[in-house]
């Protein structure tokens, strides 16, 4: 399995788990103080950094002498990034241009975080899918 595919899998699972926990907490806990909101978000980001940082370090050591990324890795990454960017752009138009008319504060914040998380999940999901199912250009 290419190291890029493995890395995308780690990203995908980490993003799915951490943001599932985060948004479940946001929905179930309800109204909390701003400090608690920030604390919840910070805990999510720290968990991601620890898992992805550790996985990156382990993979870098294991594949120290292995082959670097090639044209296929780059093309897959470009295609996934382009699709995720379009998704993020649409979501940000809703969050930044439409939501301020009807919502405020933490709702907009959560919607923005959700958009970014969704775009990243789609990006890494596409990378994994293109490695698995193939992509003929």
């Amino acid at each position: 399995m290419p190291i890029k595919e493995r890395f995308a899998q780690v990203w995908l699972v980490t993003m799915l788990v951490t943001y599932l926990v985060y948004f479940t907490a946001v929905v179930t806990v309800g109204e909390v103080t701003p400090l608690t909101q920030i604390g919840m978000f910070a805990a999510t980001v720290v968990a991601q950094v620890i898992v992805i940082g550790t996985a990156s370090a382990v993979m870098a050591i294991r594949h120290k002498d292995g082959p670097k990324s090639d044209e296929r890795d780059q093309l897959i990454d470009q295609r996934a990034t382009r699709i995720a960017y379009q998704l993020l752009l649409c979501a940000m138009i809703v969050v930044g241009c439409l939501m301020p008319f009807n919502n405020s504060g933490w709702k907009i914040f959560h919607a923005a975080v959700f958009s970014i998380a969704l775009a990243e999940i789609v990006r890494h999901g596409l990378i994994v899918s293109m490695y698995r199912r193939g992509w003929d250009g």
Binding site: M1, P2, P67, S69, D70, E71, R72, D73, R133, G134, W135, D136, G137
Partner: peptide, 14 residues
């Protein structure tokens, strides 16, 4: 290129 890319070309996946 990587071994995986050669395998993907052979399999018609890339």
């Amino acid at each position: 290129v990587t071994r995986q890319t050669i395998a993907a070309i052979e399999a018609g996946k890339y």
